[in-house]
Design a binder for these strands. Structure first.
Length: 476
RNA sequence: GUCCCCAUCGUCUAGUGGCCUAGGACGCUGGCCUCUCACGCCGGAAACAGGGGUUCGACUCCCCUUGGGGACGCCA
């Protein structure tokens, strides 16, 4: 039997981060076992489902590279099939028509609540003759669930969980308008799709008992269940938007790399000894349901950041340059240097060690992309004292006559300048940094100079010596 | 209210009765490295929710308490 998992989101919003983790676990489990990972869109709630949400979910999964097998299935499109099974149960005497009005049900629950009793449906039409049906009420079809005993689920994550059947009522299968309920649709679809492992959030755990009864009534044994704990916010409560309950595209826009998001999500509630950095290959090899924890995890941006920083450092320079170039182009408007992309790519080595997300990376890269003259921030300008400018003028002469132009040669040349001027390296490096990058912080100044090239460096030095900045009074 | 689930450093977690003086990671912090900032390296503070059992021996097993979370729709 080939392992088949599925991810079944309802398209009422974006693919939020919790859903992404559920999808990841399903994907990983299927890939680990060489099985199938299917996608089903649970769009039976016509009022709340939107095409835009479907697109957002597909985009989110694609961005995370959680590719599904076959076509995505629309649950709504299968409503006839669902109804068919409900009628079959009716014919077999395993389900019955219930003629309660919404008002009657509401009154029943209110009375139960007032008396402190369970608010479950009391099964009043279970054995009643349909001839007693009130006029003008379209019936629903309810499952004739067992009233005695208990329903037991051997959950792959939660272990054995049992519930008294008295806690479970006769659920509605088919609504008065003949459309299937979620419970019916899910079970019939999972059966038809031959799903072997249902991996989902543990908010569905109680549904699993009802679904178990439905599988049994339909004459099938249920698939394996694995209910994974939900992700909580830093305060332990349900994940709020402010705390990360965002669509995955929001993470992309915040400058996170998909591999970092996946690695982070994987370690949230799952572990493999002390391993922290787990790439996709490794994850497929190691993933197993029995290593999934049972307690809810809290979302922590700081850890995501550190993982993201790691994957940025690992990432290909060209890819990173491509990722940040569009944003820089838009931001710089007409001031983008002609060979910005090339500089970005070559400068990425030093740049990517200093960013924990793509936004920071872009921010720190801007001096490479900017055409002359570059802006110099206030702090950097304070390094361009008259003394420093004098020094820089001498350095410029040395640089101008340099025959070699690479990081090492530049470094020894600058160190030589410092030596003959009798100053510390930093006294040249910082003013140089200010003139060349417009900032007090940057990658190694020698690397920057190599990337910028001799001509650009001399140009930027000239820009600074001819601008009023060089005459700025020294900071006191 | 009823039912279900959970409980190790601030956070993610390792730990399946003796390997625990409780390990790793993030964060915090001291130092080294150093042209700035990072990276890297070395060090530090930081946890078994509480109470009962079981046992020669409990973080590990059982019970209770407390604290979290979830489910109780003709929503999904």
């Amino acid at each position: 039997m080939t392992v088949t998992t599925r991810f079944a989101p309802s398209p009422t919003g974006f693919l939020h981060i919790g859903g992404a983790r559920t999808a990841l676990f399903n994907w990983l489990f299927a890939r680990h076992h060489g099985g199938q990972f299917l996608l089903r869109i649970e769009d039976t709630d016509r009022a709340r489902s939107t095409d835009a949400a479907v697109a957002a979910i597909l985009d989110g999964l694609s961005w995370l590279e959680l590719n599904w097998d076959g076509e995505a299935i629309s649950q709504f499109a299968r409503r006839q099939r669902h109804a068919e099974e409900a009628h079959r149960l009716l014919d077999e005497g395993k389900a019955y028509r219930c003629y309660c009005s919404q008002e009657e049900l509401a009154a029943m629950r209110a009375a139960a609540k007032a008396e402190g009793r369970s608010m479950l449906y009391d099964g009043r039409w279970r054995d009643r003759n349909p001839s007693e049906a009130p006029a003008g009420i379209e019936p629903v079809i309810r499952l004739k669930a067992p009233r005695e005993g208990e329903t037991v689920i051997d959950d792959l994550v939660q272990g054995i969980v049992r519930v008294d059947n008295a806690q479970l009522d006769d659920m509605v299968l088919l609504r008065a308008d003949c459309t299937p309920t979620y419970m019916l649709a899910v079970v019939v679809d999972d059966l038809d799709m031959k799903v072997t492992h249902i991996i989902r959030g543990d908010d569905h755990l109680t549904n699993a008992f009802r679904q178990y009864q439905l599988y049994t009534a339909l004459g099938f044994s249920p698939p394996a269940f694995a209910h994974i704990p939900l992700i909580h916010g830093p305060d332990g409560a349900k994940l709020s938007k402010r705390h990360g309950a965002l669509g995955v595209e929001a993470y992309r826009d915040m400058g996170y790399l998909p591999e970092a998001v996946c690695n982070y999500l994987l370690r949230l509630g799952w572990s493999h000894g002390d391993e922290e950095i787990i790439d996709r290959r490794q994850a497929i090899a190691w993933f197993d349901l029995n290593a999934v924890g049972r307690s809810p995890a809290r979302f922590d941006f700081a850890k995501l950041d550190s993982l993201n920083a790691h994957y940025i450092r690992q990432a290909d320079d060209g890819r990173l340059a491509d990722l940040i170039l569009p944003g820089l182009t838009a931001r710089l408007e007409g001031r983008l240097a002609a060979d910005a992309q090339n500089r970005l790519k070559r400068g990425m080595r030093g740049l990517k060690e200093r960013a924990k997300n793509l936004s920071e990376l872009a921010e720190n890269s801007i001096f490479y992309a900017h055409s002359r003259p570059i802006p110099v921030d206030d702090k950097a300008a304070r390094n361009l004292t008259p003394e420093a400018s004098t020094l820089l003028l001498k350095v410029r002469d040395h640089l101008a006559s340099a025959e070699e132009w690479n990081e090492q040669s530049i470094e020894s040349l600058i160190r030589h300048c410092a030596e003959i001027a009798g100053v510390k390296l930093g006294q040249i490096a910082q003013p140089l940094r200010a003139a060349l990058t417009g900032s007090t912080v940057s990658p190694s100044i020698f690397e920057v100079m190599e990337v910028l090239g001799k001509k650009e460096c001399l140009g930027r030095l000239d820009d600074v010596s001819t601008s009023p900045l060089s005459n700025a009074p020294a900071a006191v």
